[in-house]
Design a protein around this nucleic acid. Structure first.
Ligand code: MN
Ligand code: MN
Ligand code: MN
Ligand code: MN
Lengths: 231, 231
DNA sequence: ACAATAATTTAGAATAGTCTAAAATTAGAT
DNA sequence: ATCTAATTTTAGACTATTCTAAATTATTGT
């Protein structure tokens, strides 16, 4: 139950968890790109983690991996550390929301469970991270969410910003100037099928036209305007 | 100037710095014992660090090492992180003084200079650590101190506790119950040459008789009672 | 169906850090 | 001065993580 996983292994598991939400199995190439290592290294790690004593991965040659229950718990443990740390850095040390991610990415592997508990207590046992993503509970349960990418909305639909990707400081600063932060509500005005631009109107802010490279980084909760609900 | 040193290297440098205060050169065996590695591993590391681009150690075969200026700066950098972190864990997360060391020992290698700055600011740029040891300044200068081991005092002398070793939680809890903490003043009542026990009277507390394994872990400032000052 | 292309896996090698066992050197004690 | 005991260094090896280059397998467009 309590093997000491290396930073490297924790990072593999975390990335595999992230990419598992959409797809079923995660492939060698995807991980290689996310972690900036060669595909050969990833294959190697897949094989290692799949043949550990209690395996962390389920690996099917040439098809990729899925997390086992153990692997998933380990991933959630690291993610909980990461999101608690981000909030802590913001609240206690006054980091801005674009600065927290890199620092948390290093600290997440070295803090003790005691540190985690104390930070959670100081923050009031928060359930949501600085960028809107849920924080797994102390016993490592992640809530199910009903969100989709902003990219997938179309004119006439409205929504609330649920969460934004936290790993691009430049994007985060941009979104902040737009007021497009978790909780903001907006309405989709227009869509251009050629470039996938979305023209949206943010409540209390200006209109913007966002390209797909931005809209794919934002998760939203669709506001049901009692329009075509049951048909 | 800004090589990225591994955790391992930082730990070697830190220990070498500690042992350098007394002796001139530090030997293979001492480091091996402090770090719980074999002497062979230490020799290896000595050779590596002495032949880095700007060397971190000055190594004389069979005689041991001394830190170069670069090596000393690197050691002080890590020590500054460590002592700031200990204070931070105590002040902000309510760790007790016997709990902070182990956590700081892992965090010290991964925090950024930005984190260091922010922590220092939150704490009011402290100059002294939780256990009484000085915190190197931002520009890595360590003050000179005029202290000696409690072990070396004799009946009739009085002193102030300056600092205590921070790596033994049990000892720290014991010293706390005695009120033998940095700043406490005491008087030496008796000395037994056979076992090196020191009987001391702590101001506002009870008397105690301490063995050498304890008195060698406490640094004190001798109080000059205007007795035999200039003769 | 089948060759071209893309993705994945294997093979072989490097680096950092560690170990044990053996060899070399120094220090101590007669 | 010499022998013994302790310390240090060398030699050879192992693990974790990564790489490049070559081999293998999948995909896909005709
Ligand atoms: Mn993050
Ligand atoms: Mn945890
Ligand atoms: Mn400490
Ligand atoms: Mn620093």
């Amino acid at each position: 139950m309590e093997r000491r996983l290396s930073d490297t292994v924790e990072n593999y598991l975390k990335v595999i968890y992230d990419l598992s939400s959409d797809n079923q199995r995660v492939g060698t190439g995807q991980i290689a790109e996310m972690l900036n290592v060669s595909p050969a290294s990833v294959t190697d790690m897949f094989q290692r983690l799949a043949s550990e004593d209690p395996p962390l991965l389920n690996y099917v040659k040439r098809q990729g991996v899925a997390l086992t229950e153990d692997g998933k718990k380990a991933a959630l443990e690291t993610i909980r550390h990461h999101r608690l740390l981000e909030l802590f850095l913001h609240e206690v040390l006054d980091y801005s929301w674009d600065q927290v991610h890199d620092e948390a990415d290093r600290l997440e592997h070295v803090i003790s469970e005691d540190f985690e508990e104390r930070v959670a207590a100081v923050l009031g046992n928060p359930q949501w991270g600085l960028h809107g993503k849920p924080i797994p509970s102390r016993n490592l349960v992640m809530p199910d969410l009903d969100t989709c990418y902003l990219r997938d909305l179309r004119p006439g639909q409205s929504g609330l910003v649920h969460s934004v990707n936290d790993d691009d400081p430049g994007l985060l600063r941009y979104l902040e100037t737009l007021g497009l932060v978790p909780g903001a509500s907006f309405e989709v005005i227009d869509f251009s099928p050629y470039d996938n631009n979305l023209h949206i109107r943010i409540k209390g802010e200006n209109d913007v036209v966002l390209g797909a490279s931005v809209t794919v980084q934002i998760r939203v909760e669709i506001l049901d305007l009692a329009v075509d609900k049951e048909r």
